[in-house]
Computed example of a mutant assay.
Amino acid sequence: MSDWLIYRGAGAPHDGIEHLPPPPPWRDFDGGPLVAPPAALDPASERRLGVQRREASHHRPGETERELVNAALYLRRPLLVTGAPGSGKSTLAHSVAYELGLGRVLGWPVVSRSTLRDGLYAYDAIGRLQDLQIARATPPRAAADSDASAPGGDTEDSDPADEPGGGIGRYIRLGPLGTALLPAARPRVLLVDELDKSDIDLPNDLLNVLEEGEFRIPELERLAGSAPEVRVLSDDGGRVTVRDGRVRCRAFPFIVLTSNGERDFPAPLLRRCIHLHIPVPDKERLAAMVRAHFGDGAAERYEAVIDRFLDREPGEVRAVDQLFNAIHLTQKAGWTDEDEEETRRRLTAELMRPLDRTR
Rank of each mutant, 00 (worst) to 15 (best):
L41H: 12
L355H: 03
D296A: 13
T82K: 11
R344K: 07
A135T: 06
V247E: 02
D3M: 13
P203N: 04
E221W: 00
L73I: 07
A142C: 02
F265D: 06
A150R: 11
L49Q: 11
G101S: 02
R170Q: 01
L49N: 05
G107R: 15
P21C: 04
D28V: 12
V110F: 02
V242E: 01
Q130F: 07
A71V: 15
A326T: 01
G119E: 01
S198A: 15
Q331S: 14
E67F: 02
P109H: 13
V290L: 03
P43R: 10
Y121Q: 07
I306E: 01
E63D: 08
T348Y: 03
F29A: 07
G119V: 09
E340G: 06
L190T: 02
F252W: 13
A40S: 11
E262D: 15
C249S: 13
P151W: 04
A349P: 00
R222W: 11
L207C: 04
P21L: 08
G83D: 09
G16I: 14
D307A: 10
A227N: 05
P25M: 08
M1L: 14
R128H: 10
L202P: 00
E350Y: 03
R291L: 10
L177P: 05
R54S: 12
L269S: 03
D147Q: 15
T64F: 07
A71E: 12
G11L: 04
R312N: 07
S87R: 06
A180D: 06
L257P: 00
L49R: 09
A12G: 11
D30S: 13
D159V: 05
R188F: 09
R239K: 15
E163F: 15
L129W: 10
A333H: 09
P37N: 07
A144G: 11
A184C: 00
H58I: 01
E63M: 01
R141I: 12
P281F: 09
M352T: 03
G237L: 12
R188E: 09
R291P: 08
R136E: 14
V230A: 01
V209S: 01
A298Q: 01
R357E: 12
L323W: 09
R76F: 06
A122I: 10
R243G: 02
G31C: 04
D124G: 06
I168V: 13
V256S: 09
T64L: 13
D193L: 07
H14M: 09
T258P: 06
V96N: 03
W335D: 02
C249N: 08
G127P: 04
V192I: 12
R271N: 13
V232Q: 05
R272N: 03
P187C: 06
R48F: 14
K332F: 12
R66H: 05
L347F: 13
S198F: 00
L347Y: 13
R243L: 11
G167P: 02
P25G: 07
L5T: 12
R136P: 04
R188Q: 00
L68S: 04
L276P: 04
T258V: 10
R318N: 07
I306S: 00
E229N: 11
V209C: 00
G9H: 02
L195E: 08
G9N: 03
L329P: 01
D205W: 00
P203E: 00
M352F: 08
G245P: 10
V305D: 10
H59I: 13
R271P: 04
A298M: 01
L132S: 04
L116C: 08
